Every structure is written in C-alpha cells, then in structure tokens.
Amino acid sequence: MSSSSIHPTSIVEAGAKIGDRVTIGPFCHIGPEAVIGNDVTLLSHVVIMGATTLGDGAKVYPNAILGGDPQNTKHKGGHTTLVIGRNCTVREGVTMNRGTDGSRGFTTVGDNCMFLAYSHVAHDCDIGDNVTFANNVMIGGHVSVGNNVIIGGGAALHQFVRVGHHAFVGGLAAVALDVIPYGMVIGNHAYLGGLNIVGMKRSGMARPEIHNLRRAVRMLFDRSKPVRNRAGDVRLAFSQSPAVADLVDFITADTKRAFCTPPLGSGIETSDSDDNS
C-alpha cells in the first residue's frame, strides 16, 4: 500500500489487500475480504463488500456498490464471491452482487467491460470480456453474457437467460429468452430482429463469414422445422464455417429455455444492403 493513496475519510478494513498505485478517494468503504488490483481508482463513496476482487486498472465512480449480498431468498449467508476483471469502468450507482451459496456461488465479470450508470449485475452471473451495459440495464441471477456484447439502456434480462457473444440487445428490450451469438434483439418482449452486423465488422470478422452467418440464420429460422431440429441441417450445410459451428453449438446446448425468434411472418432480414465491408 506504500505507493497507493487513500483519502483520510475512507475506511479500509484490516485484511483488505490493496495493490500498487491505487487511488481511493473520499468516503469509500473497503471490506476486510476485498482484493484491489494495481492501478485502480475509486473516485468517492464507493463500497466494496464481501469477498470481492477488483482487477488491475479498474475505475469506479461514486456510489457504486460492489459485492453486496445476493438478492436471493435462498442465500443463507455462506461464503460467496464476486470477481471483476481488468480495466473495467464502473460508473455511478452501479450494483454487482456476489453469488449464492448452494448455487453457482460466484459472480464473474471479464476484462475491459463498461457498466454505465445504475446498471445492475445480479448474483451468480457470468459476464464475458469487452461487454458494455448502457444506463439502467438490469440482469437477473444466473444470466450468462458472452464476449463483445452490447446491451442498450434500460434493457432487462430474465434470470438464467444466455446472451451469445457479439450480440446486441436494444434499449428497453425485455429479454426472457436466449439470444443467439451475433444476434440483435429488440422489443418488449424482445424478438430477433437480425444480426449484429456492425459488431461483427468491428470485431474484424471476414465478410464471407458474415455472409455465412446471415444465410445460416435465415435457414435456422425458416419455420419449416423447430429451431433445434434445424440446427443439424445448418451444421452440415455450413460445415466449413467456424462461426456457424459456434452458433449451432449455442443452439444445441443443454438448456430448456427457448430462443428469441423473428416475429411470425416477418422472417430475418435478407438484404445485404447494410453490409458495405
């Protein structure tokens, strides 16, 4: 702690582990089981509770509460954790809860994530790398969010929902069903409105692979068969495409939850006019 700066109005309880070059501003409270990485900045009025690990390079804004007890009546007070990765930005009023004892027991957040004001990560969630939550996003317990996902302001995700990597959830969407990788969902309740073409381009995906995914998704949701039954046909038709194989693996995973699908009669958008790569 010799190279760190702790404001005299803040409380760092005995047992907390503070890395190098940490700045803790006024009126913060760091609990005895907290582990704070190197080069972390807590601006002011930040509360870190329970067995919470905050990775190197994080920046946390006022009134964020990290590592609070799970909001789950099944939790009986056992030891559970929250682990937040490197270089995350946590804006004002964000809340993240630890896991639930007797369940997964830990909440995890990946590297390079951004959580805008008043967003919430519930107990036992698993958040990937490079994820962005816009203002007031709320996700229930046991939600899984893949890498490179963007969730628009005010969106809400039902507990146990899975959001595949590179997906986009529109603002104010109410997501009660799984979101396929690369998918873009909107509405209340959310439906599949197409693919996150912009996100795929930003991640450097090759144009032929984007086209493979577009054709594969149209085939998956053509309503000639249930989606899971159609998955095998899609795998065979696009056997040389790693991205399609990844999509099919998500579809065929052992889960009882259905998927966000296109509205009846609308289908998936088929034009390539928005693909100018």
Rank of each mutant, 00 (worst) to 15 (best):
G140M: 13
A122Q: 05
D124V: 10
G146K: 04
T132K: 06
N130G: 00
D126T: 12
M138N: 11
G140T: 07
V145N: 01
L157Q: 04
M138Y: 13
A122I: 02
V143F: 02
F133I: 08
F133C: 08
H142W: 03
G141H: 11
G154R: 10
D111R: 02
N148H: 15
A122V: 04
C125F: 03
M138A: 14
I150C: 00
G141I: 07
I151G: 04
G152L: 00
N112E: 09
I139M: 15
A117V: 14
H120R: 01
N135A: 12
D111I: 01
S119A: 02
L157R: 08
N135T: 13
G152E: 01
I127W: 03
H142Q: 06
H142E: 11
L157Y: 05
V137D: 03
N112Y: 10
N112P: 03
C113Q: 13
V149H: 05
N130Y: 15
H123P: 07
A134D: 08
L116W: 02
V145H: 03
N112D: 14
D124C: 11
I127L: 13
G152I: 02
I151K: 01
M138S: 12
V149A: 07
V131W: 09
G140R: 11
C113I: 13
H158T: 08
S144V: 15
L157W: 00
G140Q: 11
V131S: 03
N148T: 09
H158I: 01
G140C: 11
F133S: 12
N135Q: 07
D124R: 06
N135H: 12
A155Y: 09
A117L: 04
G154L: 04
A134V: 15
I127M: 11
S144G: 06
G153A: 11
G146S: 10
F115P: 06
N135E: 06
F133P: 12
N148V: 10
H123L: 04
H123E: 00
N112G: 00
M114D: 00
A122L: 10
L116A: 08
I150Q: 09
V145T: 02
A155F: 02
S119K: 11
M114A: 07
G146L: 05
I139Y: 01
G154A: 10
G154P: 14
A156Q: 15
G141T: 04
A155W: 09
G140I: 12
N147A: 05
V143H: 08
N148I: 03
T132N: 05
A156Y: 00
S144M: 04
N130L: 05
C113T: 01
A122W: 12
L116T: 08
V145A: 00
T132G: 00
G152F: 05
M114E: 05
A134M: 14
I151W: 07
H142C: 07
D129G: 03
D124G: 02
N112L: 02
Y118K: 01
F133V: 13
G152N: 13
I139T: 14
G153C: 03
F115M: 12
N148C: 08
H158A: 06
A134N: 12
N147G: 01
I150A: 04
L116N: 09
I127S: 04
C125K: 02
D129Y: 03
D111T: 06
C113G: 12
I139N: 07
T132P: 00
N136E: 03
V149T: 07
M114K: 09
V131E: 09
I151D: 05
M138G: 14
G153I: 08
V149M: 06
N135R: 09
H142V: 00
S144I: 14
I127R: 03
